[in-house]
């Protein structure tokens, strides 16, 4: 049972602040690090993985108690090679000794960890990620999903108590995604500390029991997914709607409590609708249109981009 303590950590690059005064603990179980692209997720993961020094604050690892049951002292991760006995790292970048076969790659990782039986450890790790069938093929011939799984195997080969994954689901097909989710869920249930980053809410929601949200380098929200989800869906949603009869549609919609405001935009020849109850509005709109014999030409959410969702979160 290991915990990563992030204490008042900032990181800047020249004039750009990538991570701004973040304090959080990553405890055993699966934690999702959620945020839009460029929010500072990778910077934070790099600091947790010891590949970037915090400009300010500390990132420490409190490893699981030793065999004698005594709690081990927390130690900074930066410039501390020994912390890799506890940490497994799945980087986002693709570079990974493409000239090796999958098995050679995982074996090399096992040897570098100084494991007693590297061959057995490599075989076990490859079995865990179900890559035995392709172990003799060069990594250069692997698909993106296969590479991701071999990366996983290399990170798991020494049974780390902490697993850090940077955007692990990028480029995976749905089946591979499901398989990796199952695997990570299992690791979390075993009491390992699993942290993965993603910019996709659904991914995080399906997998993580705990979510940390980062927006523009700041710690925006923290909690379980229901709380985050509510924050995200309860905000007012804006839609742009064009129909065969905008005025009649507007009159019918405003009668319902789920609609907070409607504007007739003459230049756009469209309705700008602000809905407060997202789920109710999405069933209301087609029903009203059908009942009044109005044809809908355009229905488009005008602020559905992830960035706007997140900026709402920050304001909340």
């Amino acid at each position: 049972m290991s915990t990563i303590h992030i204490d008042r950590v900032s990181r800047w690059f020249g004039n750009v602040v990538a991570v701004n005064d973040i304090t959080m603990d990553i405890a055993p179980g699966v934690t999702g690090l959620l945020g839009p692209n460029g929010a500072g997720k990778s910077t934070l993961i790099h600091m947790m993985g010891g590949f970037l020094s915090p400009s300010n604050g500390t990132v420490t690892l409190e490893p699981s108690p030793g065999p004698d049951g005594k709690p081990a002292a927390a130690a900074p991760i930066w410039r501390n090679e020994d912390s890799y006995r506890h940490i497994g790292l799945v980087p986002e970048r693709e570079g990974m000794y493409d000239f090796l076969t999958g098995e050679e790659f995982v074996l090399a990782n096992a040897e570098l960890h100084g494991l007693r039986d590297p061959r057995a450890a490599a075989a076990e790790a490859l079995a865990t990620v179900e890559m035995e069938h392709a172990r003799d093929r060069r990594i250069s011939t692997y698909s993106k999903g296969m590479r991701q799984r071999v990366k996983m195997a290399s990170a798991l080969v020494h049974h780390p108590t902490v697993l850090l994954l940077d955007e692990p689901f990028n480029g995976m097909d749905p089946r591979q995604r499901m398989h990796l989710m199952e695997l990570l869920r299992k690791m979390g249930d075993e009491g390992r500390t699993v942290l993965f980053s993603s910019h996709i809410l659904e991914e995080v929601e399906q997998l993580a029991s705990h979510i940390e949200v980062i927006v523009a380098g700041r710690h925006a929200a923290s909690g379980d997914f229901r709380k985050i989800r509510r924050l995200m869906t309860d905000r007012p949603h804006r839609y742009l709607v064009r129909s065969s009869d905008d005025r009649r549609l507007a009159a019918a919609l405003i009668a319902d409590a789920s609609t907070a405001g409607i504007e007739l935009d003459r230049t756009e020849q469209a309705l700008r609708i602000q809905a407060v109850d997202f789920t109710r509005f999405t069933t209301l709109l087609p029903r009203v249109a059908r009942e009044h014999g109005i044809r809908l030409h355009t229905v488009s959410p005008s602020d559905e981009s992830l960035e706007s969702v997140f900026s709402y979160l920050v304001a909340a």
Binding site: G49, G50, F51, E81, D82, Y84, R85, I87, L89, P91, R93, E94, G95, M96, Y97, F105, A108, N109, L112, H113, G114, S154
Partner: peptide
């Protein structure tokens, strides 16, 4: 090349002296 393509991370994320 290892530093360029990032694969050096697999060497450095190990308890091996630099």
């Amino acid at each position: 090349p290892e530093i360029d393509d990032g694969s050096v991370v697999y060497l450095l994320s190990k308890p091996v002296g630099r």
